[in-house]
């Protein structure tokens, strides 16, 4: 009864690899299939455009009953993502539903990049600037994207 990867995780991984979401790449670690390296492209017409953000995603033992754990590895200037890369997203917390999948979670994160929500902040200083001087905040986000998320090579 114990051990082995649940069929759901196997199938999700297969489908993610076979039918990837545009702008999102998720590959499981070879030694731990519950651990994924994720690359999310910054959405067009957002300050994160042209950036490629690295995230890590982990499926806990109780997945899909409990949500996956996701964190940004690339530094990002965003009111809902803090210095440690933690993400403030309802579906990753109390709004999680077992019918959601890795795919939908990553899509939601991509959408979060398109539509920052400074009213529900995680990084207070960023949210403050976003509310008081949005233009400057967006400019900073663009700079950060260029500094940390654009592959210069």
């Amino acid at each position: 009864m114990s051990g082995g990867l649940p069929r759901r995780i196997v199938k999700e991984t297969q489908r993610l690899l076979a039918e990837p979401v545009p702008g999102i790449k998720a590959t499981p670690h070879e030694e731990n299939a519950r651990y994924f390296d994720v690359f999310v492209d910054g959405p067009k017409e957002s300050p994160f455009e042209k950036g490629c953000f690295k995230l890590e995603l982990f499926l806990p033992e109780e997945y899909p009953m409990s949500p996956p754990k996701v964190r940004f590895n690339t530094k990002i200037y965003h009111p809902n993502i803090d210095k440690l890369g933690r993400i403030c997203l309802d579906i990753l917390k109390d709004k999680w539903s077992p019918a959601l999948q890795i795919r939908t979670v990553l899509l939601s994160i991509q959408a979060l990049l398109s539509a920052p929500n400074p009213d529900d902040p995680l990084a207070n200083d960023v949210a403050e600037l976003w509310k008081t001087n949005e233009a400057k905040a967006i400019e900073t986000a663009r700079q950060w994207t260029h500094m940390y998320a654009v592959n210069k090579s």
């Binding site: 649940p6 759901r8 999700e12 077992p98 019918a99």
Partner: peptide, 11 residues
């Protein structure tokens, strides 16, 4: 068919 697949366990 995907309709007959459980949305939770994918079986």
């Amino acid at each position: 068919p995907s309709e007959l697949e459980c949305k939770l366990c994918f079986n």
